[in-house]
């Protein structure tokens, strides 16, 4: 009798697990294909064997420059930023049990951007200072909105509304800074307004890539804790999760990745927002959506960048394309949440 139950439960779980593995494999394969396309396509389409030869270090006239200096950094920036945005977004959404509670909507990304623009326009600071300042600004934004929404009892609704308010404030600040900016600073500042992979350079990438390699394993180690936090504060404590420390570590890791990704590509609209729910729909609940969400994020960024580059007569930065995809989804979600009385 007991053995039958074990077998029955095991079969169901293995089936769900198989789905997770299949979906994750497909997402990985898709990301590989998109990465390859990013290297192959451009003003000139190079044959695949030339691209591979350049990547292995061979010098081929024309190909080497286009692939190594222009396309490879662009591809890596899209891949890692998309991955980081996707993972950070799904962590926020899971922690706060609400798809609207993501770094975009909560104004965390705007906080980082406004600070970066301030550093560029007013302080004329260098890249390292900008990255660190925007990182700190992201963290302070989290603390402020979290603190404000905790007055008279924490509520998710208040967190989101305060976040939207904070975001509007930062956006106004950015607009003001752009107006007073000296003309030569504008291109650098503009980068912080809309996500773009244009002009990604190899030497800008290490902070983002290193942070992903360090923080993602930490986040994976906390996957189980996150799934317990999902059951609510009381259940989580009863199950032995140290809720404050776990939450802090997850938020800290996410904000660092977001700030560094933003300083590399700019705030690519809606990735933190879209990746989690799409991943969840694909893999089903019960298993972690962290890695799938990262892959979905990377896939959306890379695909959107390819669309932005080649689908139209004019080249659009990636953020414009993700904005076009994301905005309708945001509206749909608001309507659905309103109908369910969750807002």
């Amino acid at each position: 009798m007991r053995n039958n139950s074990v077998t029955y439960i095991m079969e169901g779980r293995q089936q769900r697990r198989r789905r997770w593995i299949i979906v994750t494999s497909i997402l990985t394969a898709l990301a590989c294909i998109l990465c390859l396309l990013m290297l192959l396509l451009g003003n000139t389409i190079y044959p695949i064997k030339d691209v591979i030869r350049t990547l292995t270090g061979e010098q081929i006239q024309g190909v080497s420059f286009a692939v190594n200096v222009i396309r490879l950094p662009r591809m890596l920036a899209g891949l890692f930023a998309g991955f980081a945005f996707g993972i950070a977004g799904t962590i926020f959404q899971t922690l706060f049990r609400n798809p609207l509670a993501n770094p975009n909507v909560l104004g965390i990304t705007s906080g980082s951007s406004a600070t970066a623009v301030f550093c560029i326009v007013i302080l004329q600071a260098g890249n390292a200072v900008i990255s660190i300042a925007s990182l700190i600004a992201g963290l302070i934004t989290v603390i402020v909105i979290y603190g404000l929404s905790g007055i008279r009892g924490f509520s998710i609704g208040r967190l989101i509304l305060i976040g939207i308010g904070v975001q509007a404030m930062f956006d106004a600040l950015i607009s003001y800074l752009m107006l007073v900016s000296a003309e030569q600073n504008l291109p650098a500042a503009l980068r912080w307004l809309n996500g773009s992979l244009n002009g990604s350079q190899m030497h800008d990438l290490p902070p983002l890539i290193i942070s992903v390699f360090i923080l993602v394993p930490i986040i994976i180690l906390l996957t189980k804790h996150l799934s317990i936090l999902e059951l609510g504060e009381q259940s989580a404590i009863s199950l032995g999760v140290n809720t404050d420390i776990t939450r802090m570590m997850l938020i800290l890791s996410s904000v660092i990745m977001i700030a560094l990704a933003t300083s590399t590509t700019g705030p690519i609209a809606f990735i933190t927002f879209l990746a989690g729910p799409i991943a969840k729909r694909l893999v089903g609940a019960g298993f972690s959506t962290i890695i799938p969400a990262g892959l979905v994020g990377a896939n959306i960024v890379l695909a959107s960048d390819l669309i932005g580059q080649f689908a139209f007569d004019v080249r659009f930065p990636v953020g414009v394309i993700t904005g076009i995809i994301g905005a309708p989804y945001l509206i749909y979600l608001l309507i659905r949440m309103n109908q369910r009385g969750e807002l």
Binding site: I9, G12, R13, R16, Q234, A285
Partner: peptide, 12 residues
């Protein structure tokens, strides 16, 4: 009032 994660199966 424990919180139910969306779409999770009973066994999980």
């Amino acid at each position: 009032s424990p919180i139910v994660p969306e779409g999770i199966s009973v066994a999980d």
